[in-house]
Amino acid sequence: QLMSGTAVFLTSDPASAPTALMHSLKHYKALHEQNVILSVVTAQQPVVPDSERVKMETVNELFMRVTLTFGYMEQPN
């Protein structure tokens, strides 16, 4: 069953299913129409250019993987 709207699930490992997603599926027995698997990464450089900040990858019609990368001297906002 699909619920309307978008769900965002934070994870440190974008290659595996986030725990919050699994709990949501178990509790609601449904997925949202759009689901974003979001990872925030700290680069080994002090500043990351805006052109390299966001990486978006479509997994399928329900899921998208988004990685935000910040330099170690930057404060994510």
Rank of each mutant, 00 (worst) to 15 (best):
Q1S: 14
Q1M: 14
Q1F: 11
L2D: 10
S4T: 15
S4Y: 13
G5N: 11
T6K: 09
T6Y: 05
A7H: 10
A7F: 11
V8S: 00
V8M: 07
V8Q: 01
F9P: 01
L10R: 07
L10P: 00
S12M: 09
S12P: 09
P14A: 09
P14C: 02
A15M: 11
S16I: 15
S16V: 15
A17H: 08
A17L: 14
P18K: 01
P18N: 04
T19K: 11
M22G: 03
M22V: 07
M22N: 09
H23E: 12
S24V: 03
S24G: 09
L25D: 09
L25E: 01
L25M: 13
K26F: 14
K26V: 14
K26I: 14
Y28A: 04
Y28R: 10
Y28W: 13
Y28K: 11
K29A: 15
A30R: 01
L31V: 06
H32T: 09
E33C: 06
E33F: 01
N35C: 13
N35P: 09
V36R: 06
L38G: 02
S39M: 01
S39D: 00
S39W: 06
S39H: 00
S39A: 08
T42C: 13
T42P: 05
A43D: 05
A43Q: 04
A43T: 11
A43Y: 05
A43F: 00
Q45C: 08
Q45N: 05
V47N: 05
P49S: 08
P49F: 06
D50W: 10
S51G: 09
E52W: 06
E52M: 13
K55L: 08
M56Q: 07
T58P: 10
V59A: 02
V59E: 06
V59W: 04
N60C: 04
N60H: 02
E61L: 03
E61Y: 02
L62A: 05
F63C: 06
M64Q: 11
M64L: 05
R65F: 00
R65W: 00
R65D: 11
R65A: 10
V66R: 01
T67V: 14
T69L: 07
G71L: 03
Y72E: 03
Y72K: 00
M73L: 14
M73A: 15
E74P: 04
Q75G: 03
Q75M: 12
P76V: 14
N77I: 15
